[in-house]
Design a protein around this nucleic acid. Structure first.
Length: 314
DNA sequence: AGAATTTGACCCAT
DNA sequence: ATGGGTCAAATTCT
């Protein structure tokens, strides 16, 4: 880590802030197809620019931080203890502390019905073990365990909930990591959490932004903007905390969050862990709009070959 | 018949 | 006391 990356923090901050503002406007203009398309283009453009600046300032071969790896928001402003970090998702819903972050822990994704049914998001098969009505939510939450739960004692679980504000989108929360190595590419797609409402189409192709459905585009956009929480202590100063909503911070907030950290060392510090073996620099920007390029390897060992996983996990 | 899902009951954290 | 998460018997599906 001797080399220095020269970034233009002002430009990056400006573009990211613009993206945030556009996303806010998008939220209020969902009914206008024209405005929607325009804003989506603007958001993509802003993030492309920001990424370009980061890329051009970085080392050759260093892939800039995917926005899906940006820190998840936290309602807390307390500084976590050394060795701990704090993360959350939208108003404390998933706020919790961990001594050590593990990949696939509390990763939240927003998926469309098609993505969910087409098993496009993960290659594991899941068995539903429960469903609960959630206070204040229109739709119940479904609970799934990895199908290898019994055979291989795989502890991975996921929760699927139809989003209140957009019933065509599903919030999928992955918990734990897969300790099984049986990636069931041939396994049937996981059942829709509300089977009685949606007829599965059983197409197993990746459903990406090529979809003509604007709501799918929006959902994909949201999926791309979703945030992974694992390995954050590798990215962030130990005293780091986040604002309460993903898009809820202003320029000033951003500046206060990164007072002296927009230098090469900081950026390099969080760029390096996110070099994806499956993501070439050449296709990164152009593929940014599609969900698959930001997906992570299903096996954490593939993602972190040098990472020392706890024996109990492997 | 076996596998998968549903659903009410139970447990536990707050 | 309440709500979220899990269990397990009952039911449905293949």
């Amino acid at each position: 880590m001797e080399s220095v990356c020269v970034y233009e923090p002002t430009t990056v901050i400006h573009e990211l802030t613009q993206g945030i503002e556009m996303a806010k406007q998008l939220r209020h203009n969902l009914n206008s197809a024209e405005a929607r398309e325009f804003l989506i283009q603007k958001i993509l453009s802003s993030y492309d620019k920001a990424l370009f600046v980061l890329k051009s300032g970085g080392q050759p071969g260093v892939t800039p931080l995917p926005e899906s790896s940006l820190p998840k928001s936290s309602a807390s402003t307390d500084s976590p203890q050394s060795g701990e970090f704090e993360f959350g998702f939208d108003q404390n819903v998933f706020s919790k502390k961990r001594k050590f972050p593990t990949p696939w822990e509390d990763e939240v994704r927003i998926l469309t019905e098609n993505e969910l049914e087409g098993n496009t998001n993960d290659d594991y098969s899941w068995r539903k073990y429960g469903q609960k009505d959630i206070l204040g939510a229109k739709f119940p939450r479904s609970y799934y365990k990895c199908s290898n739960n019994k055979v291989q004692k795989c502890m991975a679980t996921k929760q699927v909930k139809k989003m209140d504000e957009n019933p065509t989108a599903f919030e999928v929360t992955y918990k734990g990591i897969h300790t099984c190595n049986n990636v069931s590419q041939l396994a049937p797609p996981p059942p829709s959490p509300e089977k009685h409402e949606t007829k599965p189409t059983h197409h197993h192709l990746y459903h990406e932004l090529s979809s003509p459905n604007p709501s799918d585009i929006l959902s994909n956009l949201r999926a791309n903007l979703s945030v992974n929480t694992w390995d954050m202590d590798a990215i962030l100063p130990s005293s780091f905390s986040f604002p309460s909503t993903p898009f809820g911070f202003s320029d000033d907030d951003f500046q206060s969050l990164f007072p002296n950290h927009m230098d090469g060392e900081f950026l390099q510090g969080y760029s390096q862990p996110f070099i994806s073996p499956a993501t070439s620099e050449s296709n990164y920007l152009t593929d940014w709009g599609s969900s698959s390029s930001l997906d992570f390897p299903t096996n954490p060992v593939d993602l972190y070959p040098d990472f020392e996983f706890n024996n109990s996990f492997l």
